[in-house]
Design a protein around this nucleic acid. Sequence first.
DNA 1: ACCTGAACACCGTTCAAGT
DNA 2: ACCTGAACACCGTTCAAGT
Lengths: 232, 232
Amino acid sequence: MPTSPADSPRSRSGALTADKVIDAAVALTVERGLDNWTLRQLAAAIGAYPAVVYHHVGDRDAVVCAVLDRVVGQLELPDDRLGWQEWFSALLAALREVLRKHPGTARRMAAFGPSVEAAAPTLDRGVRILLDAGFGEESPLAYTLLTATACQFVALEDDRNCSPALRLNNTEEYAGYRQRDDLPGMAAQGRAMHRLLTDPEQAAGYHAKLFDAAVGRCLEGLACRLAQLQSS
Amino acid sequence: MPTSPADSPRSRSGALTADKVIDAAVALTVERGLDNWTLRQLAAAIGAYPAVVYHHVGDRDAVVCAVLDRVVGQLELPDDRLGWQEWFSALLAALREVLRKHPGTARRMAAFGPSVEAAAPTLDRGVRILLDAGFGEESPLAYTLLTATACQFVALEDDRNCSPALRLNNTEEYAGYRQRDDLPGMAAQGRAMHRLLTDPEQAAGYHAKLFDAAVGRCLEGLACRLAQLQSS
DNA sequence: ACCTGAACACCGTTCAAGT
DNA sequence: ACCTGAACACCGTTCAAGT
């Protein structure tokens, strides 16, 4: 009886509300990831029928949007007095942490963001900091670039952690090329993959390093662009 | 009779092979996107039962991997004599074009890439160019950064084109903030969104511009990094 | 070896009916 | 207004049976 909410944990915790449905959805997302629970499972988790999720929140997409807003709500903004590069460095590091706790949310966040209301505080502050730094009309673009880059590299990490088998296979295959002197590019890649396979410490930090490199290069690239803007 | 392959186009085009299954999968991907056809629809398109797709290729994921390899097979490498920045600029522009023709492939490509065999020619050449430019041990990381950034910004474009309604809503809502002097960051964002809504030419080129900015800032950031590496 | 046809265990979503 | 319980039209995958 998979649909039966019979003996589930709603015995007497008060009436069912939209908020409680979303609480449960956030919990499932933390546990298994945004794409790894079904609406039926969410309903079962609160001891209800699927139709009551529809009644209180809406379809699956509506639940997902609500989860996204909860996630950005946990984000704390860095100190105002930091320089623009340091401010974004800190913001995006905090963003990574929050997104990583809720696997699968980074992808949606990159493509569609949270609701405008939920995005507003961060967006206003971030764009203002770029305006003050001198990016002028390009400030919204720069803000989008930085946040999209951060979200997408977290999304990549989420995706890879979801199917680690596939990833390991590839890594081993690449490592096999590490002494192919006829293919020096593949050999360099192979050595890097081999290091990843033999040094567990490096493997654990790989995605953090990739994230830092992506955000770091984006910030440096923007600093170049700022210099161009100001010299003209 | 949704599963019936009855009068479908396999009358007399020769025996069914893995290659023909994959041809059909590529065609469906070009038409509707990688995530918008089902294995049952693929089977129907070649006038066969779902089980024959399993027999010749494997499960849905196996078909998807085969499609990815076909897609990267279409990629042509830029002229060797270009500088590293120009070479990658050209490569990633060509990559965007190929990926855009096959919606949905960019996301998979970013996270898992094609098979090692299909990736090898591009990867070897690309990493070699970075080695020659002076990136040393960081060449594989730089290569990953560039290709992942490119794939992911195409993926973002794919995702947004898939549900244009959601995107338009957000854009209009942001545009509503364009005269909020109390929120200068949101106002700047609002003006940018308003421009997008009123100038169709700008709207059409938005994602190309975002892609160019992402790749451009990544290349500039790497140039900074290269200068750091060489001065030490 | 290859294809048939049906089955299994799921989905998201809808809806009449109850209270 | 809120919940029940069943139904609808799908999925991907598996499998015994045919040829």
